[in-house]
């Protein structure tokens, strides 16, 4: 029983990480209807810049805020320079652009920062909270940060005019132009927000998995599984999906298939969701146009 609880809590902690990256995926998907395969590497670059800022003497929170702002700008620029020119091309070419972007970002990070493993600080205390032995402070902190981001996004999409405009662009780009929305700018904004969310995720992941250019490869597969499971257009789905994937992964790893084969859980899940319920648990099925 004790062991099972341990696995569940560890799963929730991992799940929070998948959830935060899945949120970034959902963000871009909702606005552009593209799945951003380069999301993990964007977050990697953000995490490296946070690391560099801290190395250069900035305090943790200054580095955090500056990195999130820089990442936002990086998202806007990438949308403008790389994605927008490619977006008129057939879907398959766009996928190839995303994969190219992923490889390029990864190589740039490796070239600048090297391939050795770096340690990254956590803003949370080293001792587990309240003397419990199920979950560490950092893990609990990551869960809180993820839920906090979900809350902010919910408020943003639901209650602000800008959030409504972003939803409109996702729903019907042509009509958006007819009501005076500058759609391309909104796509840039969506990319900026996704990159900012990814930056927070990267900074939260780095203390757990350590910082090196391959940090994101495994994590992203789980995040894709989480986003698909929850519904690729649903922020709440992303978070619920993240937690489910995290717990499932840990339980399967501990009791069923062993840790070596854990990554296949993500693959199997992706295939099952695509076959059984492509819209995911919380996603909107494609609405029929009258």
């Amino acid at each position: 029983m004790e062991g099972l609880l341990h696995q569940v809590f560890a799963g929730l902690a991992n799940g929070a990480i998948y959830a935060s990256l899945a949120l970034a995926l959902v963000m871009i998907y909702r606005v552009t209807h593209f799945v951003n395969f380069a999301q993990g590497e964007l977050a990697l670059c953000s995490t490296y810049s946070a690391w560099a800022l801290i190395e250069a003497g900035a305090s943790y929170w200054v580095a955090f805020v500056v990195t999130v702002a820089l990442s936002f700008a990086m998202g806007v620029v990438i949308e403008r320079v790389v994605i927008r020119p490619a977006s008129r091309a057939p879907a398959l070419s766009v996928v190839i652009v995303f994969i190219g972007l992923m490889v390029a970002l990864n190589s740039v990070a490796g070239w600048i920062f090297g391939y050795s493993t770096l340690s990254f600080p956590s803003p949370f205390p080293a001792e587990p909270p309240f003397g419990n032995h199920y979950i560490g402070s950092h893990e609990l902190g990551v869960i809180a940060v993820t839920l906090g981001m979900l809350g902010l996004l919910y408020v943003f999409f639901r209650f602000t005019t800008l959030g409504l405009v972003l939803r409109a662009v996702a729903d019907n780009a042509e009509s958006s132009r007819l009501v005076g929305i500058r759609v391309e700018r909104m796509l840039g904004l969506g990319w900026g927000l996704a990159a900012a969310i990814g930056a927070v995720a990267g900074i939260m992941i780095a203390p757990i998995v350590f910082l090196d250019p391959s940090m994101m490869s495994g994590v992203m597969l789980y995040a894709f599984a989480a986003a698909l499971l929850g519904g690729i257009d649903s922020p709440i789905g992303a978070v619920v999906g993240g937690f489910i994937v995290g717990v499932l992964e840990n339980l399967m790893g501990a009791y069923v298939i062993g840790t070596e084969l854990k990554l296949t859980v993500a693959l199997v899940l992706i295939v099952v969701v695509l076959v059984v319920k492509p819209s995911g648990l919380f996603g909107q099925p494609v609405a029929a146009r009258v």
Binding site: R167, A168, D171, N172, S175, A287
Partner: peptide, 9 residues
């Protein structure tokens, strides 16, 4: 033409 509403909103 076709009204151009935002169907999911």
């Amino acid at each position: 033409e076709g009204r151009g509403t935002f169907p999911n909103l």
